[in-house]
Amino acid sequence: LRLCSKAPHSATREANLAALAASRQRLLQADGEDLGQEDELADELRAFCARHALWPHGTETLVLRHFRVGGRGLAAAADLSAGDTVLAVPESLLLSSERLSSYDGLAAALSAAAGDSLHDDVRLSLALLLEIARDQAGAWAEYCRFLPERPPSALHWASRQLQRLAHTPLVGRVTAAREALREAHAALFPALSLALPQLFPPASFSWRRFLWAYTVVQTRGLVVGGGAEPRARRTVLAPVADLLNYSPTSPLAWPSLEAA
């Protein structure tokens, strides 16, 4: 709202402000509850959760729905009580940048291509693409159908869309972030594909795929762990859990979950 208020007066600005105000109003109204529509992939997600034991005690707790604001998300499958555990993601399905160390020769190849300066989010993006490319029948390749083709990140905006926010700090930040990501990709590829052709087939690690994976991390990564030790914190991708309010436009009037 603050960024939008600072934009120059225009029809777009007024429309954006009205949409944001309406969204805020819905959060404040008790009768503004959006129960969403059935999602076409609801059965597939149910099967995924059952197959990978994501529901505690085998009881169905969540259902995939399509919400008017925020799109695809998770709803309670039945009345749930405070304290109920609704989702448990096993360690084998969690993806963090540490997964990269399980590939022989990758640490050396990464270091040769990009030094030790790679951001953890870039490393996690690589881990995601590797996981999908490595095992076509694996859980992450299977889970891809629930991930958006175009995650809601400003990095995907066309310059025409960015220009609507001209005169805000956002334009410079988005441009710089895209440029830094392009440089990271250019440092890694084709170097990694030449060094480890079996692991990095070029088609699976194009700029387009790389940007997609990075924006998945950006919009769906969860920062977990660490406790009192910030250096022990890490970003993980957790299937199904990432559907809990992934969208920046989702209503937040129901703050009901914590990660433990």
Partner: peptide, 22 residues
């Protein structure tokens, strides 16, 4: 181990969307 469990902070009626609380 790094398994993640998600627990409700408040009751949620059937059909209502769930959100992570940061």
């Amino acid at each position: 181990t790094l398994a993640l469990t998600f627990r409700l902070l408040s009751a949620v009626p059937a059909g209502r969307q769930l959100c992570l609380y940061y």
